[in-house]
Design a protein around this nucleic acid. Structure first.
Lengths: 162, 162
DNA sequence: ACTAAATAATTGACTAAGTCAAATAATGGA
DNA sequence: TCCATTATTTGACTTAGTCAATTATTTAGT
């Protein structure tokens, strides 16, 4: 298999897969959030930070959790800081997130409120339902095979990037 | 493998893969086209239509190529017709595409001009280059394995949707 | 061929998403 | 402490995309 042929296969796969993901995104579009907002919500939940109180001993010692949060998020989501700020404001206004100065006047700390977590849970439930519907018809061995194939793709592409 | 576990794996894969695709899209963003415009360009090339002259006998007989083109494209790309129209206008203004009434006052016929094809070729060259770079480090058997895994994923997901 | 119903194309006015540059605040190191 | 860097925030702006209404075009029935 020459590399050139693989390039074309990947492009074919991209067309196929982005089409599929697009279908699934329809669900998100029905939700009260845009795709970007959903990503922010998700990312906020995935990188939890203390909502209050002192950072622990280790955190203080090694400056964990003290990095400026908004810029981190912006970098990770490849979002313009200015825009992220607006999303965060909106979330704060909706009572989904909190932005508060950390202890000892430290940098901003972002966190989801209980309502924010609930909103995210709703979103996730919807996408899970869609995915479950998508794979509902697969037989047991096909389920296994798909899982395996996905892992292979991931692993090989990660290898490739190293 | 229960279906529920696969749902989570697919979500993990989506995160991974959309991140990767996002990286590759950076290239497109450097180009003079937006992502949507690139898709339109690509789709125009993929569904070629006669740029001039009479449709052939069979085409007339079976109404081939007589379907209203813009709406077809809009449907396929899931784009609002109004917006597609603007993109087409822009392309026409740039000399990349032509919209002309078909023979005998028939419906509009869309096609890429020579310049349009050249622009697309540039785009494709850039993405091909990026992809080639991505997989450059793969050894021969890994190349084969990746191709195989991609095909498996496609096949299994297509099966699932039937 | 003529008309009515349906579908497609087109436009203008609008909303929302995202960018940019400049101002301010905070941090880290000499 | 003071300077240089990096992060945050804001306002003004651009671009992408939607919506609803209008005009053409096609199709089917007669």
């Amino acid at each position: 298999m020459p590399h050139e042929a693989l390039v074309y296969e990947i492009r074919r796969f991209n067309r196929f897969y982005t089409g599929l993901v697009g279908l699934l995104d329809e669900t998100l579009i029905q939700s009260p959030f845009t795709l970007t907002e959903a990503r922010v919500l998700f990312e906020l939940a995935r990188r939890p930070r203390p909502t209050s109180g002192e950072p622990g001993f280790l955190a203080r010692m090694f400056h964990l959790d003290l990095a400026p949060v908004a810029s981190e998020l912006a970098g990770e989501l490849r979002l313009a800081p200015a825009y992220l700020m607006r999303v965060l404001r909106k979330f704060t206004a909706m009572g989904l997130a909190e932005m508060r100065a950390g202890p000892e006047g430290g940098p901003l700390v972002l966190s989801l409120t209980v309502r924010g977590k609930a909103a995210l849970a709703d979103l996730e439930a919807a996408t899970n339902r869609d995915l479950a519907r998508l794979i509902a018809k697969l037989r047991d061995e096909e389920t296994l095979a798909l899982s395996d194939a996905l892992n292979r793709v991931t692993r090989l592409l990660e290898t490739a990037r190293m």
